[in-house]
C-alpha cells in the first residue's frame, strides 16, 4: 500500500543531545501506526518535526509524496496534517463549539470587510462552521457540551475535544501525542472507539502512546524508538516478541501491567 508519510534520515539535536538520530519511517495510508519508546526517547520531537513546529538538522519528510521542506506549521496543517498535543492545548476562554468553529475547514471563508459589511455572507459562513463543528462534536460524542466553556471541562473530555478540533480541519493524517494518557478505563474505551472510527473513515493515524493495551489492540504497525534511534518496527505481534524492544522498553511495562 502507498505511504502517506515518509520520514527519511531525520536528525535533530538540542545542544549536545541527539533527540532524533537518523530516524526513518513510513506510515501507510489508512493505517494506525504507533510510535512507542521510553520517556525522552524523542517521540514528541518527531511529531513536532513532522508538523513543522521545529525544523530538522538533516533528513527529509515527505507527505503524500511531497517534501515538506520549510513549510510552516499552518501550511502543513492545511495540506492535511492534523495533530493533538501531549499537554492539551485548547482555547480555554472559548466554548466547546467555538473551539471547533475556529478550526473548521469551510468552503465559504470571507474576508474581514465582507464580514463587516455583508450580513448575509457573515451568517452563511457562521452557519457552515457551526454545522460542521456540530457534526464532528456528534461524531466524538460531545455535542451535549457544545455551549460549555472549555476551561471547566473534565480532563477526559478535553482530550477528546482536542481530537475533534483536529478532525474539523479535515486532516488526511492525524498525529496523536499520547491520547490515552490520564484517561480512566471507560474513557480509554471511548477513545479507542473514536480512533477506530477515524481509521474507518480513511484518515491515517500516527499515534504516540505508552498504554500497551491501546497500542497492541488498535495499531497495525509499531515503530520503537530509543535514544532518538529506531530500534524496531513491525506488527504488534512482532514487536511484543522482539528481544531488544523487551529489554529497552516493554519488559518492565508488561510486568507492571500484569501485576
Amino acid at each position: 500500500m502507498e505511504d502517506i508519510l515518509r520520514v527519511e534520515n531525520l536528525s535533530k539535536q538540542f545542544g549536545g543531545l541527539k533527540a532524533v538520530d537518523q530516524f526513518s519511517m513510513n506510515v501507510q495510508r489508512n493505517a494506525i501506526h504507533a510510535l512507542i519508546g521510553p520517556n525522552g526517547a524523542g517521540k514528541t520531537t518527531i511529531t513536532n518535526l513532522i508538523c513543522g513546529e521545529i525544523q530538522q538538522d538533516s533528513g527529509e519528510i515527505l507527505f503524500q509524496g511531497e517534501s515538506l521542506g520549510t513549510l510552516k506549521v499552518f501550511e502543513r496543517a492545511r495540506k492535511g496534517i492534523g495533530r493533538t498535543y501531549q499537554n492539551i492545548r485548547l482555547f480555554d476562554t472559548l466554548t466547546v463549539l467555538e473551539n471547533m468553529t475556529v478550526a473548521a475547514k469551510v468552503e465559504h471563508s470571507y474576508g474581514m470587510l465582507r464580514t463587516i459589511f455583508s450580513y448575509k455572507s457573515s451568517q452563511m459562513e457562521k452557519k457552515e462552521r457551526r454545522d460542521k463543528a456540530m457534526d464532528i462534536l456528534k461524531y466524538i460524542g460531545l455535542e451535549h457540551l457544545a455551549n460549555e466553556h472549555v476551561r471547566g471541562l473534565p480532563y477526559g473530555n478535553r482530550k477528546i475535544l482536542e481530537i475533534g478540533r483536529a478532525l474539523v480541519t479535515e486532516p488526511s493524517l492525524l498525529l496523536l501525542d499520547e491520547p490515552a494518557a490520564g484517561l480512566n478505563p471507560s474513557e480509554r474505551r471511548r477513545l479507542m472507539d473514536i480512533i477506530y472510527k477515524i481509521h474507518e473513515d480513511q484518515i491515517s493515524v500516527f499515534m504516540i502512546e505508552h498504554n500497551m493495551d491501546v497500542i497492541m489492540t488498535i495499531s497495525d504497525r509499531i515503530t520503537v524508538l530509543n535514544f532518538g534511534k529506531k530500534i524496531a518496527e513491525g506488527t504488534p505481534k512482532e514487536i511484543q516478541n522482539n528481544e531488544e524492544v523487551i529489554t529497552a522498553y516493554l519488559g518492565n511495562r508488561f510486568k507492571k501491567q500484569g501485576a
Binding site: K72, F74, R89, D92, A103, R165, T169
Partner: peptide, 10 residues
C-alpha cells in the same frame, strides 16, 4: 489562548 494550537489548526 493558545497560539501554537492556532497554527496547528491550519
Amino acid at each position: 489562548d493558545n497560539e501554537i494550537a492556532v497554527d496547528g489548526c491550519g
